[in-house]
Design a protein around this nucleic acid. Structure first.
Length: 609
RNA sequence: GGCGCUGUAGCUCAGUUGGUUAGAGCGCCUGCCUGUCACGCAGGAGGUCGUCGGUUCGAGCCCGAUCAGCGUCGCCA
């Protein structure tokens, strides 16, 4: 092993910075062995770091003998330092795929800083490696170029958001992680207190109450890159801990908050991606979003709006539709342009998908084919008047197909909305490189739990009702909120609202939600107390960082943009968490576990050592 | 918690109707190779077919259970 000389005549450089202008310079590169090409004579070593790849060449005629022999034994992922002279590559051997492809380092010295075992999976190439294996060796997975890109882009985007918000007068303020558990909303992660045996902290589901108190405290404009924790059952693309850009401001109108969020997002996309985002974003009312797109987070990358076909079938004697309409339900559908050419089998598959995956009771269709009208519906439904109206309502012509879901209006819209997304994907209309933002406004203040029938907050119980409504008379479900969602490509990026600052209004809302005075006092007493000491009007928003970055980089999963994510069962396969603790720890906490300790066996089937 | 898919070499995957010694590409090891760049060529090693049980003369393949991973729904103010 040859040491790099320490004469100070060499310059340490990254693997991405050398170019033709550096020819003749004496340099040392440090990094990982990306690939080796041993020609028996010449040995090429690709050295990799975050910045790129640089080719080092060892030549038996010019390199020190020790260095040359050492180079012959290099393997993937060894960590080395190679020193030598930068020279242009011989004509015709330049590599246009590398930023440093015009030059190479004619290496005469080599230090092996650390050998590597053979990595458990290849670092280059596009092979789809088992995600559990990637997670167990996340530090290796993160060396791969796409992951390095994702993590760096995340940094750039968050830096852009910080810079923008700072320039707008927002202060970044941290809020506590050990807080009080409240039974509303998602399940809390609990942290036992040793000093107060039998009592627990909760990890925050969001800094919601603290940011409101910061407004009461007069900080005017607050933001935080906040970590949030929710102990819910796992689901696709959900992490037990996730990050939000949490924002709150004093004396805002809804438009003020919207302008700040639009500016923040536009700045993030501009600085991290180089993508110009048009502002202001399109605004949709909640009812309008549901009616046109069957979703409160519409994907506006394509049109294909839904229509209400109820009038077309109002006069027909087809029992199923007639019964639904008699119950006040709706027949919601959409036109599948040029869809009449689908085979019977394709139609059947769609109908089955609708039933199995979207919870549809049924899905009817009419195809206006060139050789006549075909349909899953019986003749009773297909009167000339009905067909004429279907064409008129949907704007359907020959060659088109029309789908219909008959159900309660909200359910029919939801099914048609899912079909819309399905057809959009099928037709390649959901281009991940396009970014279509919108706002959804005028949400209801409350929603009814379909099972318990109880009234619950649509957003959270601190959301202010729209002005000019009487809270105490009339249907609470008809009340509108000053609540707004920002949506990108069919994903909700964030939710916000103008908050209630009047303790009397807050009490009325709690009352409508059915909270008893004792419950309110116990859970939110400190908030009402604070509001009694001069609470300014305030409002804000929280943006889901992981989702935003995932959409920016076109990743399918937020796990691709989180350095150390947990798996679908919320385990960390690398450090093996969660895991049992020492009995002594439990004794100190005065806890007894009501379940025999499971011997920890993470990743059993794949475990190597 | 429900449902679905998957589990074969270090990695990605084949494996026919249940039938002799379970294969390929990449990786790994050895040798050759002086302009390659995921170098090339030759040879070699490497397997509890996730686990347990059952059916069978015989199971990678069929049946049951179980574990694990992923997807999806409930749930997530």
């Amino acid at each position: 092993m040859t040491s790099v000389d320490n004469t100070g005549t060499q310059r340490f450089v990254t693997c991405g910075e050398l170019g033709a202008q550096d020819a003749g310079q004496r340099v040392a590169v440090r990094g990982w062995v990306n690939a080796t090409r041993d020609h028996g004579g010449l040995i090429f070593i690709d050295v990799r770091d975050r910045y790129g790849v640089t080719q080092a060449v060892f030549d038996p005629r010019t390199s020190a003998r020790e260095a040359y022999e050492s180079a012959a034994h290099l393997r993937s992922e060894d960590v080395i330092m190679a020193a030598g002279t930068v020279r242009p590559r011989p004509a015709g051997t330049e590599n246009a795929n590398l930023s440093t492809g015009a030059i190479e380092v004619a290496a005469d010295a080599l230090t092996v800083l650390n050998k590597s075992k053979t990595p458990p999976f290849p670092l280059h190439g596009d092979a789809d490696v088992d995600e559990a294996l990637r997670m167990k060796y996340r530090y290796i997975d993160l060396r791969r170029a796409p992951m390095q890109r994702n993590i760096e882009l995340r940094h750039r985007a968050l830096k852009a958001a910080r810079d923008y918000l700072d320039a707008q007068g927002f202060l970044e303020i941290e809020t506590p992680m050990l807080i009080k558990s409240t039974p509303e909303g998602a399940r809390d992660f609990l942290v036992p207190s040793r000093l107060h045996a039998g009592e627990f902290y909760a990890l925050p589901q969001s800094p919601q109450l603290f940011k409101q108190l910061l407004m009461v405290a007069g900080f005017h404009r607050y933001f935080q890159m906040a970590r949030c924790f929710r102990d819910e059952d796992s689901r696709a693309d959900r992490q037990p801990e996730f990050s939000q850009i949490d924002i709150e401001m004093t004396f805002p109108t809804q438009d003020d908050v919207i302008a700040v969020i639009e500016g923040t997002l536009a700045h993030m996309f501009e600085r991290a991606l180089g993508t110009h985002v048009k502002t202001p974003f399109v605004r949709l009312r909640y009812d309008e979003a549901l009616a046109d797109y069957g979703s409160d987070k519409p994907d506006l990358r394509f049109a294909m709006k839904l229509s209400d076909f109820s009038p077309a079938f109002a006069g027909t004697e087809f029992k199923i539709f007639a019964n639904e309409l008699a119950k006040g339900h709706a027949i919601v559908g959409l036109v599948d342009a040029s869809g009449a050419g689908r085979s019977r089998r394709e139609f059947d598959t769609l109908v089955q998908t609708a039933a199995a995956e979207w919870g549809a009771k049924g899905l009817a269709w009419i195809a206006f084919a060139s050789d006549g009208v075909k349909s899953s519906l019986p003749k009773a439904a297909l009167t000339e008047a009905a067909l004429t109206q279907v064409r008129a309502i949907g704007g359907a012509g020959e060659g088109d197909a029309v789908f219909f879901a008959a159900d309660e209006r909200a359910a029919a819209q939801a099914i048609a909305g899912k079909l819309r997304l399905h057809l959009g994907s099928e037709r390649g209309l959901r281009d991940p490189a396009r970014f279509e933002f919108c706002w959804v406004l005028d949400f209801p203040l409350f929603e009814r739990d379909p099972e318990s029938g109880a009234l619950g907050p649509m957003h959270h119980p601190f959301t202010a009702p729209a002005p000019g409504q009487d809270l105490l008379t009339g249907d609470p479900l008809a009340l509108r909120a000053q609540h707004y969602d920002v949506v990108l490509n069919g994903s909700e990026l964030g939710s916000g609202s103008i908050r209630i600052h009047d303790p009397n209004v807050q009490r009325k809302v709690f009352e409508l939600l059915g909270y008893s005075d004792e419950q309110v006092q116990q859970r939110f007493g400190f908030l009402l107390e604070a509001f009694a000491y001069g609470a300014p009007p305030h409002g804000g928003m929280a943006l889901g960082i992981d989702r935003i970055i995932a959409i920016m980089v076109g990743a399918e999963s937020i796990r691709e943009v989180i350095a150390f994510p947990k798996n679908q069962r919320f385990q960390d396969l690398m450090i093996d968490a969660p895991s049992a603790v020492e009995p002594q720890s439990l004794r100190e906490l005065r806890l007894r576990v009501d379940q025999p300790a499971q011997p920890s066996q993470p990743n059993q089937s794949r475990s190597q050592s």
